Simulated assay, not measured.
Amino acid sequence: MTTTPEPRRAPASPAPDQVREPAARPAVRVVSVVYHPGAELPDFTRSLAAATSAPVELVLVDNGTDPEVADRVAAEAGGRVVRTGENLGYGGGANAGARGATQPFLVVANPDVVWEPGSLDTLLDAAARHPDAGALGPALLNEDGTVYPSARELPSLTQGAGHAVLGKVWPGNPWTRAYQRRQETAGTERYAGWLSGACLLLRRDAFEAVGGFDEDYFMFFEDVDLGERLALAGRPNVYVPSARVTHVGGVSWKARPAAMISAHHRSAERYLHRRYHRWYQWPVRAAVSAGLRLREVVELRAAR
């Protein structure tokens, strides 16, 4: 079973003379993967403008076939569009957008994220306090203002099974609580097993050193996999709840719920099979596949 090494902990806060002045904040490339975007994309770029004083290069990666919205919004925001020629999925699209970057930091964020003013600056300041961190993530708010558990532990087999079976019918079950660490969601900065890919600040050198996102994950679990590989490389994931963004959420799900449900279960199966890959763990893999197929059927019926 894969374990996450305990990273070296940086001081909880910097000394006053270590705090970056706004003009000293490093440059950032912001990458957002879009697929037939709507009104959420202009909201993303408008809020990004107020989120940081750092030099920003905006790159929209268009996985879709209708260029009108992406081209218009990129022109208005002073960004550029990368055309993939096909739908590469989230991780593949993010890698395409990050390719060739020279900035020390990358942001990978969903186009349905709305940044609170100064929120990216808060993440950059946290990165200065945690020089070993490979990824930093903000508090991810739902539309109703509640905090989504975006900083989680790497799932053990029992946690994953308990969460998968009981998470929706008994949200407070002990396996889901342990996995999501809900009681710590609105707390102080801390290390996490992985951070939601809906909004991530990444050190470019760390991201490139682990090979970026694994493109075998078309959608979902690419962020779990990345967080695990960063931590194993000694570049931990840091949750920064003082930085806040709102995730409108479900834009892709609302358009294609059945496809998204199936993609989620295929990615979960791929991740767990890779975690339990040894020959003698074949019963685990078989049980995982059977359980996920059953859960997928139930969720597809409920989505009709």
Rank of each mutant, 00 (worst) to 15 (best):
R266D: 13
A263D: 04
G212H: 12
S150I: 02
R190N: 09
R304I: 06
A135P: 09
G85L: 08
R25L: 15
L226C: 09
E296R: 11
E208F: 00
P42W: 06
E296P: 01
D66V: 13
T146D: 08
L60G: 11
V113R: 08
S119Q: 02
R204L: 11
G92W: 10
L195T: 10
E269V: 00
R20N: 00
G172K: 02
E228K: 04
R99N: 04
G64A: 07
E296G: 00
A233W: 10
F221K: 00
T246N: 00
A258L: 13
V31R: 03
P26W: 05
P155M: 01
R80Q: 08
A263F: 01
E21W: 01
D132M: 03
D144V: 14
A268L: 01
G250Y: 11
V114D: 03
V28G: 05
A49L: 10
V108L: 07
P11G: 05
F221I: 00
P257A: 06
P117V: 03
P174F: 01
A74E: 03
L195M: 09
G211Y: 07
Q183Y: 01
T84H: 07
F213Q: 05
Q18D: 12
P174T: 04
A98M: 09
A198T: 14
E76R: 14
G249I: 09
W282L: 12
G291E: 01
A209N: 04
S32Y: 05
V210P: 12
V165A: 13
R20Q: 04
F213C: 11
Y148R: 14
V81Y: 06
V238R: 14
R46I: 13
P11I: 03
R274A: 09
G250W: 09
T2Y: 02
E86K: 14
A24E: 15
D125C: 05
C199D: 03
E57Q: 12
E116C: 04
R244A: 09
G227H: 07
R25V: 03
A54M: 09
T176Q: 02
A127Y: 07
A135S: 13
A233P: 10
V61W: 11
L292P: 00
V34F: 08
G64I: 06
P67T: 10
M260P: 01
W253F: 15
D214I: 08
A51N: 01
P257G: 04
G197F: 07
Q18Y: 00
L41Y: 11
A127H: 05
A101E: 02
V210K: 11
T146E: 09
L230H: 09
M1I: 10
V248W: 11
L41P: 10
M219L: 14
P22Q: 00
S289A: 15
E184T: 10
M219F: 14
T246G: 01
G137I: 08
R182H: 02
V30S: 01
Y90F: 12
E184I: 02
A303C: 12
R129A: 15
V28N: 08
V147D: 02
G91L: 05
F221W: 04
T45R: 03
L157Q: 00
E299L: 15
P241V: 11
D43L: 15
E228Y: 06
A94I: 06
V19K: 01
A70F: 15
A259E: 15
L226Q: 07
A51Y: 03
T4E: 07
R275G: 13
L120W: 13
D125W: 04
